[in-house]
Amino acid sequence: MPAEAARSRANLSGRSRAGRRRRAVAKATGVCLRTIRKWMDRYRREGLTGLHDRSSRPHRLRRPMPAATIETIERLRRHCEVVAKRSLEISLAMPLYEFLA
């Protein structure tokens, strides 16, 4: 999917480079003008690789989460996975490993 998204973005920026107005390309494709400009700038600077999906995670956090909070979240996630697996086994009336075999 990421490569497909990059090709589709390249197609949009190619339409604009081919002489179609950015506003017309944005309207025809349902993508906002600001996004078309951003993709065109990235394509101009980085080529096709600049059009791949990027993480929206901040580069740095103003106030990082305390380690104790992270540990609690991870423990709860592991617990939820165990609970979800067990409830699935109960609803299937068999151990999960037998169902997946």
Rank of each mutant, 00 (worst) to 15 (best):
P95A: 07
R15C: 06
R77N: 08
A68Y: 00
R21L: 15
R7H: 14
A18M: 06
V83K: 11
G19A: 06
R62H: 09
G14T: 03
R86V: 12
R86G: 06
A84T: 08
L12D: 06
M94I: 05
E98N: 13
S8T: 10
R57Q: 14
H79Q: 15
D41Y: 02
T49M: 11
R57D: 10
D41L: 04
G14I: 00
S13N: 00
S87I: 11
G50N: 04
A26Y: 05
A24M: 09
A67M: 02
E81N: 07
A24I: 12
S13R: 05
D53W: 05
T35N: 11
F99Q: 04
E4N: 09
R63Y: 15
G19T: 05
A6M: 04
R63E: 15
L100P: 01
R86M: 08
A3I: 10
E71C: 02
M1W: 09
P95W: 09
V31F: 04
T49D: 15
L48H: 07
A6R: 03
E4A: 14
S91D: 15
L33A: 11
V82K: 09
L92T: 03
R9A: 06
E46W: 09
A84H: 01
L51Y: 04
R75S: 12
R21Y: 09
G19P: 04
A101L: 09
R44N: 10
M1L: 13
L33E: 15
P64L: 05
E98I: 15
P64I: 06
A68K: 07
A26E: 07
R15N: 02
A24Q: 14
R60G: 08
L48C: 02
R62M: 08
S55F: 03
T49P: 09
G30N: 13
K27F: 12
C80M: 07
L76I: 02
C32E: 15
Y97K: 05
L100E: 14
C80D: 12
S87K: 13
R23V: 13
A10K: 04
A68W: 02
L51N: 04
L88Q: 13
R45S: 12
K27I: 13
R86W: 11
E4D: 13
Y97V: 08
A101I: 04
R62I: 11
R77P: 00
T29D: 15
A10D: 02
R9D: 04
G50K: 02
A24G: 06
L12E: 07
T35V: 10
A101W: 00
Y97W: 07
M1Y: 10
V82R: 11
S8V: 05
R20G: 01
L100H: 05
A84G: 00
P66Y: 00
A26I: 05
A18W: 02
H52N: 11
S16A: 15
A67R: 10
T69N: 02
G30M: 14
R7G: 09
R34V: 12
M94R: 14
N11L: 12
R86E: 14
A28S: 08
R9Q: 06
R63H: 15
S16H: 08
R21Q: 14
R45N: 11
R23W: 04
S87E: 14
G47M: 12
G30D: 14
